[in-house]
Amino acid sequence: MPIREKGYYNWEGELKTSPIKWLPIFVNGIKSVYKKKYSKLLFATCAFPFLIFLVAVYVATKPELKMMTRLVKEIQNDGLLFNTYYTNGFLIFMMVIMGLFAGAELISNDLKFKSFTFYLSRPLSRLDYVKGKFSIVLFYLLAFTLVPGLLLIIAKIIFSGEFSVSLNILLAAIIFPIVISLFLGSLSIMLSSLSSNSRFAMVMIFVVYVMSNGIAQMFHGIFKNTSFLFLSFDSNIRNFGKFVFGTQGEFYTHGFVAGCILVGLTILFFAIIMMRIKRVEV
């Protein structure tokens, strides 16, 4: 009978483990999304609004150029600049597409290929798993919202030659994209967790987003009450933007309420995700 007693069984210390257990999931996921077909095309398309606004910020400091006058007029102050940038329809649409592209397969593929076994049999909690997956889609959403926003601030400082951005605008330019990215990211991950068919998740992300707007506009048109616009994800994002950046506009509803709705929905989506993940039995 071989001797099986090992010295380390008597060791009473604690093994040092990484506090960010989900980091390998994040790194692996970033690379996987980057390697996908059409990823570079999507990234270039998402960067397009930033490039336009970068030129506009430059042109705004050179009135003699008389170019892009309409856009330059809309970004006369910082609040208008960032509100126009962050809530323009094209950017919001591209963020929905990014959430779909980066997020739809994250959990649905694990359901399809029964890969939960490999995650759950590692020293990784289900919450770590969700954090790892969510961080992937959050990374790409912030990469095309928060990062360009900060770059626009830097560009404005460089082109105007002075630090003219107020602290409020700076904070708003950071908080707004984070809230919107959390919302859109949690929506895509939640829909991804509902089915093993990633195409279903992709379609649902798009349909839910578009239909919310359609339903809100329909009720608004019938009842002429702006409160129905709270049903629209798109409208809530725009109104929250107006609230955060201190601007007003057509069909403005309570921006603070819109923000609370977005935060509330984000929490709800996370709760659904955790419920789904905890119920997964392999």
């Binding site: 076994t117 590692r122 020293p123 990784l124």
Partner: peptide
């Protein structure tokens, strides 16, 4: 899950 650093599992079905 802390325990699973000491456990290796080979499942019956394909899962990757």
């Amino acid at each position: 899950h802390r325990l699973f650093s000491r456990v290796g599992f080979c499942p019956e079905y394909d899962c990757y």
